Simulated assay, not measured.
Amino acid sequence: MSDKLSVLFVCVHNAGRSQMAAGFLTSLGGDGVEVRSAGSAPADSVNKAAVAAMAEVGIDISAQTPKILTFDAVETSDVVITMGCGDACPVFPGVTYRDWALPDPAGQGIEAVRPIRDEIKSRVEALLAEFAVTDAR
């Protein structure tokens, strides 16, 4: 493992859960992490309710765009966190996998997205603690 922990968040559309997780990890992990997110069937844009929910906690994910999941992204990550992508996520030896069973915010209003956002933040904080990541800024 390099000096930075490389984490890939994967969900089907790469429009809600994985984008919020990437936003939190980027914000909380700072220079101690390399953050990627992708989807097995990316949407055209990031979920507006997810963007609004993250803005409420001071994290701007409005400029992010859903990206297609690639084998290279998985293979070059230390940790891959899946969020409902099922068998679409490739598995490589030597990569740590976690599955975060979280509700899909697609089609939900901000009231439904807030608790998902808060759960993601808690899981990202636990991930940083588990891998002893500190922001090197």
Rank of each mutant, 00 (worst) to 15 (best):
E130T: 01
G86Y: 09
N14L: 00
R137K: 13
G39H: 03
G107L: 09
A88Q: 15
A129W: 00
D72V: 07
I110H: 05
V46W: 01
K121F: 07
F9S: 06
D78A: 00
L28R: 12
P103H: 01
E125C: 09
T76A: 15
K4D: 11
G23A: 07
A101H: 12
D118V: 02
L25V: 08
S27E: 15
R114E: 04
L25G: 04
P103A: 12
F92I: 12
D3F: 10
Y97P: 03
E75T: 11
A88E: 15
D31N: 11
S40W: 12
V46M: 00
Q19C: 12
G109D: 07
I110D: 02
I59F: 02
C11E: 10
F24G: 07
E75R: 15
T134Y: 10
V80R: 05
A129N: 09
W100N: 03
M1G: 15
D31W: 06
T96A: 14
A38P: 09
D135N: 15
D44W: 09
G84S: 13
V133G: 03
V80L: 04
N47E: 02
V51Y: 08
S77T: 00
A38E: 06
G94V: 10
G58W: 03
I110K: 03
M20I: 15
L5F: 08
V7N: 08
G30R: 01
T26L: 13
E119K: 06
F71E: 13
R137S: 15
A106Y: 01
I68G: 08
G39M: 07
S2L: 14
A106R: 01
S18T: 10
S122C: 12
K4M: 14
E111C: 00
L128S: 05
V35N: 02
G23F: 04
G39N: 08
S18L: 11
V46L: 01
E119V: 03
V46Y: 00
T26N: 14
G84V: 10
V95D: 07
I61M: 04
D60A: 00
F71W: 09
A101R: 12
T26E: 11
A41I: 12
G109N: 06
A22N: 11
E119D: 13
V35R: 03
E130Y: 02
E125S: 12
A55H: 14
A52W: 07
V10L: 02
I81S: 06
A15C: 01
D135R: 15
G94F: 10
F71G: 03
V46H: 04
D78E: 06
P105W: 04
Q19M: 12
G16P: 06
S122E: 13
L102A: 02
M1S: 15
P115G: 06
P105C: 01
V133Y: 04
K4V: 12
I61L: 00
K48T: 15
P66W: 08
I59G: 09
V133T: 04
A21K: 11
T70Q: 06
G86W: 10
G58S: 04
I110L: 01
A73C: 05
A43D: 15
P66N: 00
R123S: 14
S6M: 11
G16E: 09
R137V: 08
S45Y: 14
D44Q: 14
K67Y: 06
V95P: 09
P103L: 08
Q108K: 06
E119A: 10
G23T: 09
F71D: 14
S62P: 08
S40G: 14
